[in-house]
Simulated scan of single mutants.
Amino acid sequence: MTVRNRLSLAGCLLALSLPVMASPADHAEFGQPAPAASATRTVEINMTDIAFAPTSLDVKAGETVRFVLVNKGQLLHEFNLGDAAMHAAHQKEMLQMQQSGMLTPTGMGRGGMDHSSMGHGSMDMPGMKHDDPNSVLVEPGKTAELTWTFARADNLEFACNVPGHYQAGMVGKVNVAP
């Protein structure tokens, strides 16, 4: 077998194995992350202390939305897509991150947890990272983006799961129409 044939075979095997290697967190019942270029519309979400504007959003199943998230508040905020049960589970993780010093009221703490370099957790806190594809942290005065293709879902919310923020009402409704 020639080197060229071996490289072709290796490329084919790699391409066939990609779906198996993909993280299951990249896909959810309610949709999946998408490249910004595939968005059919852009929605700006303003984050203040402690609220989102707008507080609800109507989307269609199959629609790809590019969210531009603007933190106009003085505190760290999160934009997270999910249902109430997913938010409750994520809030426990966020509380652990806060207790470990990885999150502060205004940003990322020790370990240099930089959400923009997703997948790189703190060296002193192995396994603790904020890298869910349906979620982004936004520091005060900063802007971030998240692009999502929606599937059919009930009871979908966008929320801030920084400890105490969801409970204070920093949650909005996503209505997904067929």
Rank of each mutant, 00 (worst) to 15 (best):
A144M: 09
S38Y: 03
P133C: 10
M1F: 09
A51Y: 12
V138A: 06
M125F: 14
V68Q: 12
H77D: 07
F52I: 08
M21Y: 14
G62F: 01
D26E: 13
Q32Y: 09
T147W: 04
N46W: 07
L103Y: 13
M123S: 14
A84L: 07
D131F: 08
R152F: 02
L13R: 11
G121P: 13
D154Y: 02
V162K: 03
G62C: 12
N155P: 02
T104S: 12
M170P: 01
G11F: 13
G101Y: 07
K142F: 09
T147N: 02
D132Y: 05
T104D: 06
A89E: 15
A39K: 03
G31A: 12
A85M: 11
N80E: 15
L18A: 12
E139Y: 00
M170V: 06
G101M: 06
M86T: 10
S38W: 09
P33H: 04
D131S: 14
P163M: 13
S8R: 15
S122Q: 10
H87S: 08
M123E: 14
D83Q: 11
E63H: 04
G112L: 09
T106V: 14
N80S: 14
V20H: 10
N155L: 10
P105Q: 06
M108W: 04
H77M: 03
P140R: 05
N46P: 00
L103N: 05
A153N: 09
K173W: 02
A85H: 12
R4M: 07
K60M: 10
C12K: 13
P133S: 15
L103K: 08
N5Q: 15
V176Y: 06
M102V: 06
E44Y: 05
D26N: 13
D124L: 13
K129L: 13
A159R: 01
N5T: 15
A36M: 08
R110Y: 03
G164A: 13
C160N: 03
V136R: 00
N46S: 13
S38K: 09
C160Q: 01
A61H: 08
M113S: 04
A177D: 11
F30C: 06
N134Q: 14
G169F: 02
T40M: 12
P19L: 05
L103A: 06
M108V: 09
M125T: 07
Q91K: 09
I45E: 03
K92M: 08
T2M: 05
A53T: 12
R152G: 10
K72A: 15
M1K: 08
I45Y: 02
D83K: 07
K60N: 11
H90P: 00
V65T: 05
T48R: 05
T149V: 07
M113E: 06
C160W: 00
T42E: 15
G112D: 07
S100L: 15
A25S: 11
G31C: 12
A34K: 02
M108L: 09
T143C: 12
M125I: 03
A37W: 02
M123T: 14
A53D: 10
H77F: 04
N5G: 13
E44P: 02
F30N: 00
G11T: 14
C12P: 02
M21N: 11
A22S: 08
S17K: 01
